[in-house]
Computed example of a mutant assay.
Amino acid sequence: MTFVIENATEYAKWFDAAPSSERWAALSKEYAELATWVEIVEEFPRCQIAVAQNATVPLEILDRLRSARDFKVQWKVRTQQRWRDAHPDDPGPFDFDLDELIHYDLSSTERKVLRHGLVEWGGPAHCTEELAVAMGFASIADLFAQTNRIIVALKNSQPMRHIDWVRTMLATEIVFMSGTVGAAGDWETVTGIPDLETFRIIRGLQSHLVVNPLIGKAFGTRFKKREGGLS
């Protein structure tokens, strides 16, 4: 049975609902009139990522979302086969301009977690030269130098290059969880952000930031299998 989204508020309620197969179907498969889609993207910007993934959304809406402020929204448009068929000259979802400055619509708490994800390497965490390089920095000294620049950008909601988002996210994941080199049990004390809230925020950031597709492009060397064994 085809379900029709009648108005923007209805769609937003589905967006805010607990995960379920019904929620996924309503957000990604169900139909709405063009005017309703316009209302959704204008009144509920947080829903734009979901709208960009909807299988029935008109190309007129995808065209609008292609220039959205949030890079994840732009990227989701680029993953739509209908969009690629209509705009073959537009870069594909895995074609990145590594020098472009990109923005994500993040909450103040999300940005605070990312800032502490860098700052705490100069606090209770114990970074090594090798780990600093693995996280995308030239050295521990470079980690601290880049931290000063990145936290300013995060505080002021400024765009950053892809590589900055990737290494900031990775540094945050490690420093929060690791009891070997990270802050671990000291995280809540030094940041003032409860562990459970931090975990929830990091999970949200992991689904929001386009970082995994950068592995092997802007960040590191992707592992390759060879026939008959590993390489």
Rank of each mutant, 00 (worst) to 15 (best):
L65I: 01
E39C: 02
E39P: 07
A55W: 09
E39Q: 14
D63P: 01
E43W: 05
C47H: 11
A25R: 10
E22D: 12
A52Y: 08
W37D: 01
T36M: 09
L65D: 02
A32K: 12
K29H: 03
L65A: 12
K29W: 10
A68K: 06
K29T: 07
N54G: 02
L34Y: 09
R64A: 03
S67N: 09
A25K: 14
V57N: 10
C47S: 09
V41K: 04
S67H: 05
Y31K: 15
W24C: 09
A52S: 14
Q53G: 05
V41S: 05
T36C: 13
A25L: 12
P45R: 03
Q53M: 03
P58C: 02
A32C: 13
E42W: 00
Q48I: 04
V57I: 12
V41P: 03
N54C: 12
A68L: 02
R66T: 08
F44M: 01
I61P: 05
A26L: 03
I49Q: 08
A50I: 01
R23S: 03
A55Q: 15
S21V: 09
E60L: 11
T36V: 15
S28L: 10
W24V: 03
L59C: 10
W24H: 08
F44N: 11
I40Q: 09
L65G: 00
A55S: 13
F44W: 14
P45G: 04
E30N: 15
V51I: 11
N54E: 07
V41N: 03
Q48G: 06
Y31E: 15
R46D: 14
E43H: 15
S67T: 00
A32R: 08
D63N: 13
E42G: 04
F44P: 02
E30T: 08
E43K: 15
I49N: 03
I61V: 15
Q53F: 05
I61N: 01
D63R: 06
R69Q: 10
A35F: 08
R64N: 11
W37F: 12
L59R: 15
E22S: 07
V41H: 00
E42C: 06
A32E: 13
D70H: 06
R46Q: 15
V51R: 05
L34F: 10
V41A: 06
A32P: 07
R23N: 02
E42R: 13
E43R: 14
L34K: 08
R64Y: 04
A55P: 06
W37I: 08
I49H: 05
R46V: 14
L27H: 08
S67Q: 04
R66W: 01
A68M: 00
K29M: 08
A50T: 00
V57F: 04
D70T: 02
A50M: 00
D63K: 02
R46F: 14
W24Q: 08
E42H: 13
S21A: 14
P45E: 01
R64T: 01
P45T: 05
R66N: 06
V38C: 04
A68I: 03
C47N: 04
V57T: 00
A32M: 12
K29E: 14
A35R: 06
R23V: 06
F44V: 10
K29Q: 11
A68E: 04
P45S: 00
A52W: 00
W24I: 10
